[in-house]
Design a protein around this nucleic acid. Sequence first.
DNA 1: CGTACGTTTGATCTTTCTCAATAATGGTGG
DNA 2: CCACCATTATTGAGAAAGATCAAACGTACG
Lengths: 221, 221
Amino acid sequence: MELPYRLRRLDPGSYLVREGDLPSHCTVLVTGYAYRQKVTGEGSRQIMAICIPGDAVDLQNMFLDVSDHSVQLLTQCKVADVPREALQELVLTRPTIGSAIIELTLVEASILREWVVNVGRRDARARIAHILCEFAVRLEDRGLLTDHGFELPMTQEQLADATGLTSVHVNRVLKSLEADGLINRRRRHIHFDNWRALQDAGDFSRRYLHIPDQDTLAQTY
Amino acid sequence: MELPYRLRRLDPGSYLVREGDLPSHCTVLVTGYAYRQKVTGEGSRQIMAICIPGDAVDLQNMFLDVSDHSVQLLTQCKVADVPREALQELVLTRPTIGSAIIELTLVEASILREWVVNVGRRDARARIAHILCEFAVRLEDRGLLTDHGFELPMTQEQLADATGLTSVHVNRVLKSLEADGLINRRRRHIHFDNWRALQDAGDFSRRYLHIPDQDTLAQTY
DNA sequence: CGTACGTTTGATCTTTCTCAATAATGGTGG
DNA sequence: CCACCATTATTGAGAAAGATCAAACGTACG
């Protein structure tokens, strides 16, 4: 399958899609990180997903009309834009690809369900631990995990908007997780000192990510 | 398209899928209501979606492996089971159907994103108002809205589990919404006394539901 | 070297939870 | 039809997690 595409390099803070847009192409993150976001009438922001390299950012907009949320870059990114029509065409001519897209979308929905649980029914400590675990496992699946840690590409305020907390409280929880020996921080770099305990603290199970591979994080501990 | 199916009638509380299952068929709700649910390690429950008549309940399980959540009935239901293979086959032979399923799944994801916002960044009053609005508009779309109200098929405890609150607090908020003249309750029946104000209170906009039709609720007020 | 942004910390305040008890409501068997 | 039982709804009082406000401290970067 040879899809037409165009490469772009964008700076942190750029929008890939804005709520209300009617985008003409589907963007794939080649390198860098982004997040899906919505702002309430009151003006507070909620982040509903972190996009990592390899993620298709707006399948939504290929098959639906007006975008229901925004996607903003966390870091400098290289992205590939695929025209909307090309993708729609591909789904119709190659049903196998259609199935693959259904699968991608279903996994995304599964992750969203877990986010609802995280934000709705876990306390602050578990929420933070959970999001760290999720991020680590997803990165690992893409081969982006350095030894037992990673570079968290977001500020504590963004972490707060992803967990439904305030940045002040996120800070306190991070410090507490560190004090308890679950993680280790050097600037934005998170190292897992006790992966097992962090998973427990976050009530984390990787089932909902639907990643078939072996859990090497678990193996090395 | 003539899909093979089997009809069943089930009682409230029955499970259509359990987390961890590997279901062999996809269920469609013909009549009655259900919800998607997950239970945390601490034992608290979060409801992530309400299924209404006409909803396909586990597309998830058609294309993914082990189920990541449970689906339980709110009311007595009539359901149709379609074999997993039949549906997978259909997607491959009829790409148009594949596109339609992608679309369904994307809308479901959009609703989930809004739930994350609701539970993560709105206060109790707005959460309740929002979920009532969402339910009303979805029912309206299926032609299930009686004049300007509907029969809420869930207890206040279930409403609490859907909004990340406690049943006690849900009760207080409902009473306050009623006291302020936004809604009217007779047993489980909710009547919208001031649809405009309820939408405002819930920070509700129907965009994320991706329903093309006109908003008749708005027209009649 | 200064400015902007992000992090850290402390003190106080609010929303929502918890615990507990009472009142409706609906369904059931006699 | 009625008494009884199990849910569900309602209400009050006190407790707690997390928010808010405010300030100080780092660190990167132009």
